[in-house]
Design a binder for these strands. Structure first.
Length: 431
DNA sequence: TCTGGGGTCCTAGGACCC
DNA sequence: TCTGGGGTCCTAGGACCC
């Protein structure tokens, strides 16, 4: 038996924990650059504000209904998330952290407490420890637990916990689930399925496995099995090492100058190097991409990207920035208004298993430099850990000019002393 | 005027090996 | 006119997830 625990309207809930006056009011959280809706309270959903909808198109509604709008505060959400996960890990020994607001739990052996009863206990405990509300779905496979979770969220009669334990419950649940709402079925595939008369999850579960295998490949075949109660997507308790690391941003405004793009790309490359060191990994390839707005007319559109091999697998900020700069120089075209850029490092290997190949012609001077570079990076990371990110950085990195817009950022309530005090104010302590 | 960021898995096809 | 069988590795592109 699997359980899927999913936080309700997670980013909005995080904001509400620190400002309960927002309860009952419509609240939305925007993506970087205050672009799209990425979280909505139930009240905001009821106003018809769609997930992913661009905020500027709904200015009227936001104003008219006095919707509280937040810029994304990922530092806060990440910290609250880790508290939720910690609570869950104490309630069930086997847990897979699936996303910032979701976790799968292995419920094997918990039947003796009653699955639904234990689900209710989990719900209560998480709210008590963190202030975050969750819904829980349970079923014999991860895909069915996902479906159950959807029901738990949608239908009040479940009280936030939906258990699919027997054949009848499962069939009824699948009949009420639209095919596009199955976990793993996106837009393209649901169109394909609907064209074939497969409209519900129940239809899907009874579809021809040959046809599914042919058109939806192995991924679809697994879903079919899982809907029929045969588990084939296992719980992944340890996160496998990342295969690629990406740092990309849309710019707060158009960027035209090469030098400015250069600073942005250097900053992303530096961030990738920091992430690599945090993972204990080295990368062997590097990709840089730059692009104009996808909403431009075709003649004003440009998408430039190139991948190169690094001279040797690396996690060195300076090395990676240098390589990224070379790629940028090669793909940059003057005369375009750039809106976004990014750096991706891949071909990742762990530093701990000494997977990086040795040089056939070792260069002692270079080795010495490498060693010094590594020590330098250690010092840099240590300073930034202790005094805050960005305390020390290379001259090439600069995030001032292209910085994303964040007009309505809430304080970093749980991660910066200064911002906690700023909000609460010393006078409140007396009461 | 203004439209996010960070990932994974799978397949097909090309280039290569013996 | 006729031209094997069994592989690996890599990349691009397309699908999906939150």
């Amino acid at each position: 038996m699997f359980a899927l625990v999913d936080c309700n309207n997670f980013y909005v809930s995080c904001e509400r924990v620190f400002d309960p006056s927002l309860n009952g009011r419509p609240v939305v959280v925007l993506s970087n650059n205050d672009g799209c809706f990425i979280a909505r309270s139930n009240e905001a959903k009821a106003l018809g504000l769609p997930m992913g909808g661009p905020a500027f198109k709904f200015r009227e509604t936001l104003k008219k209904h006095r919707v509280k709008v937040f810029s994304a505060n990922f530092t806060l959400y990440g910290d609250i998330s880790s508290r939720v996960m910690e609570t869950l890990a104490n309630l069930a020994p086997e847990i897979e952290i699936y996303s910032i607001d979701e976790a799968f739990l292995d419920m094997t052996g918990f039947g003796r407490f009653g699955f639904s009863e234990y689900g209710a206990t989990i719900r209560k405990t998480v709210t008590k420890h963190t202030g975050i509300q969750v819904c829980i779905g349970m079923g014999p496979t991860k895909t069915l637990a996902k479906a159950a979770n959807r029901l738990a969220k949608k239908k009040p009669r479940y009280n936030g916990v939906c258990l699919l334990a027997n054949e009848q419950e499962i069939q009824a649940a699948l009949a009420s689930l639209k095919v596009e709402d199955i976990w793993g079925i996106g837009r393209q595939w649901s169109a394909l399925l609907q064209a074939r008369g497969i409209n519900t999850a129940l239809d899907f579960s009874r579809a021809s496995s040959t046809w599914i295998r042919q058109h939806l490949h192995i991924t679809g075949a697994r879903i079919l099995e899982e809907l029929n109660g045969r588990s084939c997507i296992p719980l992944e308790q340890v996160r496998p090492p990342k295969q690629s690391i990406c740092t990309s941003r849309s710019f707060g405004r158009s960027v035209v100058e090469f030098e400015e793009l250069q600073q942005a790309v250097a900053t992303f490359a530096g961030k990738c190097a920091t992430k690599l060191r945090k993972e204990g990994s080295v990368a062997s390839t590097l990709t840089v991409f730059i692009c104009t707005s996808p909403f431009n007319e075709p003649s004003l559109k440009y998408w430039g990207t190139r991948t190169v091999a690094l001279r040797q697998p690396s996690q060195d900020t300076i090395e990676i920035i240098r390589a990224a700069n070379q790629v940028l120089t090669a793909i940059f075209k003057a005369g375009f208004e750039y809106k976004k850029a990014g750096v991706i490092v891949a071909g990742i290997a762990s530093t701990t298993v000494s997977a990086s190949p040795l040089s056939l012609f070792p260069d002692e001077a270079a080795e010495l430099t490498n060693e010094r570079q590594q020590k330098f990076m250690l010092v840099m990371d240590k300073i930034n850990r202790q005094y805050g990110n960005g305390t020390i950085h290379t001259g090439a990195e600069n995030s001032e000019r292209w910085k994303p817009q964040q007009a309505n950022l809430s304080p970093h309530y749980t991660t910066k002393w200064g911002e906690i005090i700023e909000v609460r104010g010393p006078h409140q302590y007396s009461s």
